[in-house]
Each structure stands twice: as structure tokens, then as C-alpha cells.
Nucleic acid binder design. Structure first.
Length: 409
DNA sequence: AAGTCGGGGAG
DNA sequence: CTCCCAGACTT
């Protein structure tokens, strides 16, 4: 078979090669599989790695709230919170959440707004909505008991292969593998797999490896240990190979490729954006209330921050000025926004977007001929009421800004 | 296979 | 700044 790659590796001068390129070239020239060494086909090797890992974990494992009492529900909540989120960030949220919703039944009984309020600041809010929806499914279909078959568990919203395996192995001792950020890196290094972990073939191999490594006794302990060593020793940069109990079996360590494994994933292309948010105070003539109220809405399904409350804000389109942004937003709102003085600007990030948010005071008026009333998803709320609505972090900062302004006047 | 979804920790 | 985090889900 002829090589389809038109760029011959050997024509690249050595000068131009980075360290990782050298590693890549090395395996190309040696005609070795980029995916793995052969070490892990040996049961002695696997036993040795397990022994080292589990011995280390017994001494060094962190004392985490979901470890002392590992019921399926408690582990489930922890796993959802931990998706794409560091342990240190989760712990406080976890305590607060479990205090408010100590059982599946309590979670199912709560409103989605109440659940989202407990999630405020954690991000990826769909996790909270899926968790809540799944609790209701469990109450209705599983008699409020967390299901124990893999098929039933993975069918629940917000639970994929990783999370199903984690919950059932940790809380029930079921022999199911896991693969996530930590273990992708740890396993890649153990078996000397070059190349990005996101490649299809790499992912398949790593799952296979994760399964092959699982001990019969206490597989959940192994899964947690593998993640823990990734978080504490086998870090993305500067792994502590000297303190590592698996170093003597580790292919990356043997080859000196800790820095090149796993291969780099395609880097994120950031995009700068300017958005506008408007603080619209209710006109005194609209009602006889004594404290000011501000216009917000519950964000609908399918948009950013669905299920949270927000001020009128431009998102999709980019506008040059507050005036144009207000005009553009008017059509969506069903009334006219008349931008006023700028209150503040703040920078924040949403996934790959770097957002420069301009916050303007604003007046409003109905379109000519319309009589004024607040369209359906919108409502006026006092600062005290806003405090109790779930919002994004940037939305919350707007509330804080309003509060400060109110206390000054 | 690639995009989307948040926010913070840490180098 | 950057990368990464006990991923799931949609297109």
C-alpha cells in the first residue's frame, strides 16, 4: 500500500523538529505502532502495576466526602459534579447539595430552579438539569432506588460510559472500567502510547486497557486509585516520577517520554467577542412598589445558560455599539430598548469565547401603537428577588453591581 | 469527527 | 496569557 501522506517525514530537517516531533519520527522510523508497547499483555506486569498503585493509594488517598459514605446516590452526585471540574472546586458544592437534597427522593421533589441555584458557579448547567431529570426518572421507574444494571444506569440523562462505570464500580463493586482525563494520561504513559488520546483508535485501546487492568476484587478502588495518581503524581506537566510507585513498570518513564505522552490535542482557537447587557429599571409609574425592580428572563431551551435567569443580553450577533445592540435586541424582546449610560464592563470566558461584556443602563418603551406589558418569559425583580434566582457568574456580577449602585443612592 | 457547554485552578 | 479538569450530548 502506498503512503497517502504526501509529506515525507525524512525530508524535515532535524533543526525544525520539536522534542515531540522527534518522538513521533522515532516511532515512524522504527515502524512501531504509535499506540502501545507490548508490556501490558503480561499478567505479571499488570499485577505489578496494580500492586504499586493500590499500595500507594492506601497511604496517599485524599479524604473526600463521597469516599467515607459511598452510596450509589452520593457517588452519582459526586461524579456528575466532577465532570470537567476539579475535586477542590467540587467539595464545597457537594456538601451544600447533599445537605439540601440528602436523598434521590428529596432531589426529585425539588424544583429545577432550586437545583440550579445550588449549581450556580459550577458551570455546565446541563449537568444539574440532567441530574434532576434523572432523579425523577428513578423515582418513577425504579421505585426511588438507584438502578444497579449498567444498561439502566447509562440510559439515565447525563450519564455516559465513564460515569456509569464509575458509579457502579465505586458504590457497588461492579467490575466496570472507567476512562477520563486522568486515566487517559496515566494509562497512555504506562503503556507508552504516543499520539493524542482523543484519536478513535487510541480511545478504543485505552478502554480495552482499562478493562484488562481491573482487578476482580474491589475494582472501584482501582478506578479511584488510577484517577487519584493522575491528579496527584502523574500530572499533565512535571509528573512526579521519582515518587511514583509504578515508575519501574512505566513505558513512558523507561523511554523518557513523560513530557511527550500523551500527544498534544489540537489546541483551542479562542474567539474574541463583545456582548452587551442592559439593566432596565421598571418605571415608577408602572406600579406602586417601593424598591426598584429590574428586567430579567428565564432563558429558554437550546440557548446558552438554558434554565438560568439573565438580563437582556446580546449573544449570537456582534454589535459595534450599545445603540445598535439595543436595537437588535428590541426585535427579540418585543419592545424597544433605549441604551443609556455605561455602568461597567467585564471580561469573562464561555467555552472558547473570550467575552468583553459591556453593561449599560437602559430605558424602554413599547413599539409605536403597542400597549406596554412585559412579554411572557420576562419579569421585573428586585435585587432581593434576583439573589434567589439561579444565574450565570457574569449575570450575578451584574446583580452585585446594581446592589452597589442602590446602596450608594 | 467536530462543536457545544462554564468556570476556576495553576503554571 | 495557556492548558486542563473523575464528560455528555448533538450534529
Amino acid at each position: 500500500m502506498l503512503p497517502t501522506n504526501s509529506e515525507p517525514t525524512k525530508d524535515i530537517t532535524t533543526k525544525c523538529l520539536s522534542k515531540s516531533d522527534h518522538a513521533l519520527v522515532a516511532w515512524r522510523e522504527s515502524n512501531e505502532s504509535p499506540l502501545h508497547g507490548e508490556c501490558w499483555t503480561s499478567s505479571k506486569w499488570r499485577a505489578s502495576v496494580r500492586r504499586g498503585l493500590l499500595g500507594w493509594f492506601k497511604k496517599e488517598s485524599r479524604d473526600l466526602p463521597w469516599r467515607s459514605d459511598s452510596t450509589p446516590y452520593r457517588v452519582w452526585v459526586s461524579e456528575i459534579m466532577l465532570q470537567q471540574t476539579q475535586v477542590a472546586t467540587v467539595v464545597e458544592y457537594y456538601h451544600r447539595f447533599m445537605d439540601s437534597f440528602p436523598t434521590i427522593h428529596a432531589l426529585a421533589e425539588a424544583s429545577e430552579q432550586e437545583v440550579l441555584a445550588h449549581w450556580e458557579g459550577l458551570g455546565y448547567y446541563r449537568r444539574a438539569r440532567s441530574l434532576h431529570a434523572a432523579a425523577r426518572v428513578i423515582v418513577e421507574q425504579h421505585d426511588a432506588k438507584f438502578p444497579c444494571s449498567y444498561e439502566e444506569v447509562i440510559a439515565l440523562p447525563g450519564i455516559g460510559r465513564y460515569t456509569a462505570g464509575a458509579i457502579l464500580s465505586i458504590s457497588q463493586g461492579q467490575r466496570l472500567p472507567i476512562l477520563e482525563g486522568n486515566t487517559q494520561r496515566v494509562f497512555s504513559r504506562w503503556i507508552g502510547m504516543r499520539g493524542p488520546v482523543t484519536d478513535r483508535a487510541a480511545t478504543k485501546l485505552l478502554w480495552k486497557f482499562a478493562e484488562a487492568m481491573l482487578p476482580t476484587r474491589n475494582p472501584g478502588n482501582f478506578n479511584q486509585a488510577a484517577m487519584e495518581i493522575g491528579a496527584l503524581l502523574c500530572r499533565p506537566t512535571e509528573p512526579d516520577c521519582k515518587g511514583c510507585p509504578v515508575a519501574s513498570s512505566c513505558e513512558a518513564n523507561r523511554l523518557g517520554l513523560q513530557g511527550e505522552i500523551p500527544g498534544k490535542v489540537k489546541k483551542v482557537v479562542y474567539e474574541d467577542r463583545r456582548e452587551f447587557a442592559f439593566v432596565i429599571k421598571e418605571k415608577p409609574s408602572d406600579s406602586t412598589i417601593d424598591s426598584s425592580r429590574y428586567l430579567v428572563r428565564l432563558l429558554p431551551e437550546g440557548v446558552r445558560w438554558a434554565g438560568l435567569w439573565d438580563f437582556p443580553r446580546t449573544t449570537e450577533q456582534s454589535y459595534e455599539s450599545a445603540l445598535k445592540a439595543g436595537h437588535g435586541l428590541s426585535a427579540e424582546l418585543g419592545f424597544m430598548i433605549v441604551p443609556g449610560e455605561k455602568l461597567a464592563s467585564l471580561r469573562h470566558a464561555v467555552t472558547r469565547f473570550r467575552i468583553d461584556l459591556q453593561i449599560h443602563e437602559s430605558d424602554y418603551r413599547p413599539f409605536p401603537g403597542d400597549s406596554w406589558r412585559v412579554p411572557k418569559p420576562w419579569k421585573f425583580a428586585t435585587v432581593t428577588e434576583l439573589d434567589n434566582l439561579p444565574m450565570s457568574v457574569s449575570g450575578r456580577k451584574i446583580v452585585d453591581r446594581i446592589r452597589k449602585q442602590e446602596s450608594n443612592s
